[in-house]
Each structure stands twice: as C-alpha cells, then as structure tokens.
Nucleic acid binder design. Sequence first.
DNA 1: GCGTGGCGGGAAAGCGCTTTCCAGCGCTGC
DNA 2: GCAGCGCTGGAAAGCGCTTTCCCGCCACGC
Lengths: 338, 338
Amino acid sequence: MSARQVTLAEVAKQAGVSLATASRVLNGSTRQVSEELSDRVLRTAEELGYVPNASAQALARNSSSLVGLVVHDITDPYFSCIAAGVTRVAEEAGLVVVLGTTGRRPEREVELLSTLRAHRARAVVLAGSRTTDRAAQSRLAAEIDAFTEQGGRVACVSQAKLGTDTVVPGNRAGARALARSLAELGHKRFAVLGGPAELVVARDRLAGFKAGLADAGIAPPVVINGAFTRDGGYEAALELLTSKSRATCVFAVTDVMAMGAMAALRERGVRVPEDMSIAGFDDIPTLRDTVPALSTVRLPLEHMGELAAGLVLDAGGDEARTVRVAGEVVLRASTAHN
Amino acid sequence: MSARQVTLAEVAKQAGVSLATASRVLNGSTRQVSEELSDRVLRTAEELGYVPNASAQALARNSSSLVGLVVHDITDPYFSCIAAGVTRVAEEAGLVVVLGTTGRRPEREVELLSTLRAHRARAVVLAGSRTTDRAAQSRLAAEIDAFTEQGGRVACVSQAKLGTDTVVPGNRAGARALARSLAELGHKRFAVLGGPAELVVARDRLAGFKAGLADAGIAPPVVINGAFTRDGGYEAALELLTSKSRATCVFAVTDVMAMGAMAALRERGVRVPEDMSIAGFDDIPTLRDTVPALSTVRLPLEHMGELAAGLVLDAGGDEARTVRVAGEVVLRASTAHN
DNA sequence: GCGTGGCGGGAAAGCGCTTTCCAGCGCTGC
DNA sequence: GCAGCGCTGGAAAGCGCTTTCCCGCCACGC
C-alpha cells in the first residue's frame, strides 16, 4: 500500500536526462528534443508507470484542466441531459468535469463558484436557472467577476444578464408558438402551472404563453405557481382542480411538472386528453414513452450542453456571446381538439 | 481582466505576519495562533478576497479534495440518482466531485481512473456495472491497484470482485422475489428481456428471476438479450413479439428497458397489463408516474450513492467492505392476475 | 580563422502552499 | 536562581512540475 508515486525526477534520472528534458518530452512543449532522448524518456516513463501530478502541473502552469458544471439537481433529466452534453465536449477536449449541485440554493451556487475558483478551474458552465432575486444575483455576479478576473471563462445555460457567454433557449418564442398551436386545437380557456415567480425561465415561458394566447385572441390563463419539480406540478394541478377553473387545457412550464400534474389529474379521475389537455416544455427524452404522450416544446438539451461547453472552451473574444436555440412545438396525444 | 490572484504571501505581508502564521490561521492547523494575529490575518484575507490555491494545497499536502465518480451515462436515471447520492455526501464532506462518463466503454473507465490518479483524487466511486470481459477487468484491476497504491480509495456500486469496498444491491434476491410474486399472480409462461450477456448485473437479475420461477415450479423463461437501454428494451420486446412466444408476463431487467418494451408493446397493440404483464427493476423515481404504473423491484438508488460515498470517504481498514442493499418488490398496475 | 546564429541540453528559479525546525519567552519546580 | 518545559512565531525546506536562462556545439559566411 501507499507506494510513493513515480515522479518526473525519477523518470529523468532513470532515463539519464535532465528534469527539463523529461518534462519537455512528456508534455509536448514547443522545444524539440532529439529522438534518441525522447525515446528513452518515453520508454522509462512507460516502464515506471509514470503519471504526471496534475496539481503540480496546474501550479506550475497556473491553469488547470478542470471545467466546472453547476446544476440544481442532477436527477432532474433536464439537467442530466445538459450535463451529458457538457461532459462529452469537455472530455473530448481532454478536460475533467467537476460537478456541483446547488439544490436550488443560490448561496450554494456562489460557494461552488468560489470552490471552482480555488481549483483554478479553466471554465464553468452554470446550468441553473437564473432568479430575479437581486441580492443573490449580485453576489453571484461578484463571484463570476472574480472568476473571470482570474482568467476563467463562464457560460450560462438559459437567460443570464450577467455578461457571460450564454446559451439561450427560445423559452418565450417556444411557449408562444405552443399557445398558438393549442389555440388552433379549439381550446378557449387555459391554465398555466407556473414555476416560482422569481425564476426567469418560468416567467419567460409564462409570458410567452400569454403572448401566444393574446395572438389568438384568447383570454389570459389562470396561473398557478408551484415548485419547479414533479411535486410542484402535482400540487399545482390539485390546486387548479379545487379552484373550479373551467380550463380545458393546461400548460405546465416544464415536462417534469407536467408529469406531476398528470398524476394529479389521474388521481382525481380527470382524463387526459378527453377531459383536459395538457402540455409541457423541454421534451425530456426519458419521458417520451409516457402515455398519453406529452405534447411539449422540444429543446435540444444535450446539444445545449455541448454548445455551452463549446462557448466556454474556445477562447473567444471579450465579447459576451449568445447562442440562441429554438424550441419546436411537438403535439402528441396529451392534447386533443376541443 | 486577469488580475493576479491574491496569494497567501500577500495576505501575510499585508497583515504583518509570516507566511507560516497566515497559513496556520487560514487552514486550521493543529498549531495555535494568538487571537490578535489570527484576527488580523482573517480580516486581511477577507478584505483582499483571498482564496487558497487548491492545486498548491494539494501539492503541498500531497492529497486533494477531489472525489471521482464514474458512470456510464449520466442521462440514465439509474446513474443520475446514484450520482445525486454521491455528490450530496461528498459536498457535505467539503469535497469536490469529478464526473466521468464512459459511454459503456471499458477502456474509457481505465482512462478516467488514470486521470483521477493524476489528479491525486482522494477516492473514486465506480458506478458502472462490471462486465465479465476478462481482459477489460484485469486492466481495470491494474488501474485500481495503482490508484489504491497511491493512497486513494475505491468503491464500486454493484457487483465487483475487485477487492474494493462495494455496495451490492440484492439483484439476485430481488429478481427472485419478483418472480415469485409474479407467479403468485397466476402467470405460467414468462419472458425475460435481458441485458448484454457479459453484464454481471443483467446476469444476476436473470439468474435470480429464473431461480424464483423454479421456486414456484414454473418452466424457465424465454430470454431475449438487448442493450441495457430504453432502445434495447424496445428492440427486445419487438423480437419477443415476432417470436410468437406465448408468454403472458415479461420481466425487463431494468425499468428503462421496461419503458422501451412497453412502447413496443403499445405500438403493436398489445395491451398492458390485459394482454401482457410487464415488470422492471430499479424503481426509477422519474418513471413512477407512467401509465400503467410499472411493477418493479425498488432499489434505494440515491441512498446507494450515499453509501458508496460513505464507504470511500471514511478511512476504513484494509478490509474490503461490502454493504448489501435489499430490493423491494413493488407490484403496480403493469402486472395483472392471469 | 573567427564571429554569428540556431539548436539541443541542463541548471535552477519559481508556482503557492504546508510543515518542520528552531528561537525566544514566560512559567514551573527544585 | 536556574534548568527545563510548553507555547507561539518565523525561516526555510520542500511538494512535483514548468520555463527561463545560459552554455556548448555545430554549421555557416566572410
């Protein structure tokens, strides 16, 4: 146990070259090394099972191979899809992904960013949805500044007015298009199961949906806010049912909430789509096999993760770049004509 | 941009103390520092926005705060649940989780382990399912040895004869109990949608299921192997249907495969559970709202992640420890009396 | 023949921290 | 009164690497 790790110095000594030469061979510096020495070093390194000490490299180079990924909840398929995209790109670039979960606590996001700064992470992707809480936002902004000051790059997925690179899904436009499509099905009275009022994503989707209804000349929807989770959707749907609303179609601002809502409807004997149509947002792959199949707005989540990682990994200028990603309305069995 | 990072030396100088003292104050060494100096250091550190350089600390202490987590596919809810458990425990312990995904390629697992070794990760949780491929296993074993040699700890989730700490779900026992429960429903002819033959988890579940059927005096099931994914389940179910098997109940070795299978059945007009009962394994939370609700064997996935992280984080002896986790049969609407 | 420049190799100075070792000092015990 | 001890503070030696700087060597041109 605990045999000491093989160091570059040992490799160099064994190969009969200097530390500098060994280093140059084993990490591909700009400097040339004669083939003979190079071979010798490579061979000894192999024999000894040399693995460079990443901390030492990071220290000497003043830059690490870490990329941060901050999500609210990795079990939420929305985030795990994005995470998959980010890790794929990062791993291809030979980088290592550090996963941080916030449990939706803004202060945790700040902590994580600070930890990542301590590790001199090269970049970080913030996949959490921004809030409108001013205090939290400004602390976060300060951390982000500190992080970029230090030479790290930051990208956000979803709305962010933080001056960072951003991948922006078409929340507003997608929800608006969805509303119009649903209106075309003949529905006149709508309800929306919204997320927490301070979540920008939730607000955008709600606003977009309202706009779409307005486009179609339909009265504004009943809005019920719940947590941004399956249970939030469940509770909100129950509330909707007890409210005696006469809505015939309900839009849950995420697929996950829609699942909860459908469970609630089912329990109360409300049939989908016969008694009530329901639509979600995101088009979570794992949920595509549900019955009735959920109408939704498809977002290329994994691709969004890739895009964010791409933004954050190529140097880019000082300009904050924004990549827009469109949502595509997908009507399935959970919404019917009315 | 790129303002130089505040170092301990600057803090020390500013506070008028030595480097040693500053270090002692800011990281809580065993040594005492007078309250006066301590306060001064703390205050200056705060003022300057000092954040210790994790790489330098890791180098000096020869141990980092990184914990590796290796999974096949983070979008698979099985893994994302485990990941959630691991990250929770790690974060509580003040550690940082490095996420690696293998895409089910054994060599990638080895690579990741080597990277984690380079980073002097303190520990790693391997959540991928072991295979029976001897070559791959031995390379992995070598990497694991190298890792532990260097002082790191390794834990596996699910079967592993690699001499590491392990969290073992009751795959065999769970599947066996499930088979008996299904037999009690009156089914006589069974089919199993198994995973790839070399996956230990898949084999165990299959073996357990067979044993359970034998217990009930029922003929062995038709077995169709497919990929360990939703699509694998879908394909396998199609194959089952075209095989003209007369099974009335099918067991998919994972919930995710069961979802694919149900989709296939639905497409072919086979009603669940009227025409065919179906059961899965894992009890993935995200899938609990599906209709018909899936009968399955519940595994406390998130808790398993916590257990694995726990094993790998408390020092423990040299003994490889094993924690067994029981599966609990949960019959729901997808299985009916026959 | 000698200055020049390019090139491969090595010595050594860091990178930012931890930790050992030593110095000084105020107490205690005889 | 003094040796001895415990305690706090600082100097300095690393930790394992990268990279600058320098040196010697070998064409080459005049």
